[in-house]
């Protein structure tokens, strides 16, 4: 009996500590955002929604929320338009270019946001171009910055379903290009596009560094306002943090769900078309 206890006590304790470390900051932020006062006592003194009200009624809230939404959606669209056709074409016709594409799409992992911003400003912020400090350039930088998140899941789906055979089979049965793409290719790589797109969306919605340097106060984003409030008013900052974090974890869970769905759809071929987990450089 004692031996039994010992065998489960150590793993239980380790996982318990891990969960405490991982959950405490999240739980505390959520609680802080609905607490009246929490700087004098162990437990919050009361509950309130005042901080959310203050955050929502601030004239900047709608602006920064909208700006971040516009940036995220534009980046997702630009990224899909640029990367999906390229990845498809490479897998279909130019397998020789695959190592090159794999390399290019991994490069952004080695480029921190602040270095990318520095390079763009040094090259494009001087006359006559003066392009670097615009939202359009920011979206372009974001497409590069999030490229591994888009390319990897899409390339994995393309590999998992053997796109070449599918395309040739469809065409030999007389399907037109449009029909092949719409009815054969797209449904097969949709899980990859969806999880890539969602990951890009969540990453850009929370992106602070590149936005600060490229557009700064001229185009304020949600994370910029969050950082501003961490110095000005912790209560409103907590409401912003909760919103930001809620968007992030909802997206992560949807991505995991899509991965499970994709795996079920293509069960039989052992390879997962989309890995739910993001293993790469994600720290900021």
């Amino acid at each position: 009996m004692a031996a039994m206890n010992k065998r489960t006590a150590v793993p239980g304790f380790a996982i318990g500590c891990f969960l405490f470390y991982m959950l405490l900051p999240i739980v505390a932020t959520y609680a802080f955002s609905v607490a009246t006062r929490w700087d004098r006592s162990i437990l919050p003194e009361g509950l309130t929604l005042d901080w959310y009200k203050a955050a929502f009624t601030d004239q900047w809230f709608i602006i920064v929320f909208k700006n971040s939404l516009v940036l995220s959606i534009s980046t997702v669209i630009a990224s899909i338009l640029l990367i999906v056709p390229t990845a498809y074409w490479v897998h279909l016709r130019v397998p020789k270019a695959r190592p090159l594409l794999d390399l290019i799409s991994t490069l952004p992992f080695a480029i921190p946001g602040v270095v990318l911003a520095l390079g763009l400003i040094r090259l494009y912020a001087r006359p006559p171009l003066m392009l670097a400090r615009t939202p359009v350039m920011l979206v372009a930088a974001y497409v590069i910055f999030t490229m591994p998140f888009m390319y990897r899941p899409v390339a994995n789906s393309l590999e998992a379903v053997n796109i070449r055979v599918l395309t040739e089979a469809a065409q030999s049965l007389g399907a037109s290009w449009g029909r092949t793409l719409r009815q054969i290719i797209l449904p097969n790589i949709l899980p990859g596009i969806l999880s890539g797109g969602l990951l890009v969306f969540a990453t850009i919605f929370g992106e602070f560094t590149i936005a600060t340097f490229l557009v700064g106060a001229r185009y304020k984003t949600f994370p910029m306002q969050l950082v501003y409030f961490t110095r000005r008013d912790g209560r409103i900052a907590s409401a912003y943090s909760v919103i930001s974090f809620t968007i992030a974890w909802t997206t992560s869970l949807v991505i995991l769900w899509i991965a499970a769905w994709g795996a079920k759809r293509t069960s039989g071929g052992g390879k997962h078309p989309t890995k739910g987990h993001t293993t790469g450089v994600v720290g900021d």
Binding site: L226, S238, T278, D284
Partner: peptide
């Protein structure tokens, strides 16, 4: 627990910093 890891590995930047100020 794996899903928790997936979610928290993306929890970085300003919201994370703020959460640690709260804690």
């Amino acid at each position: 627990v794996t899903a928790l890891c997936d979610v928290t590995s993306n929890f970085t930047g300003a919201p994370l910093a703020f959460a640690f100020i709260v804690v």
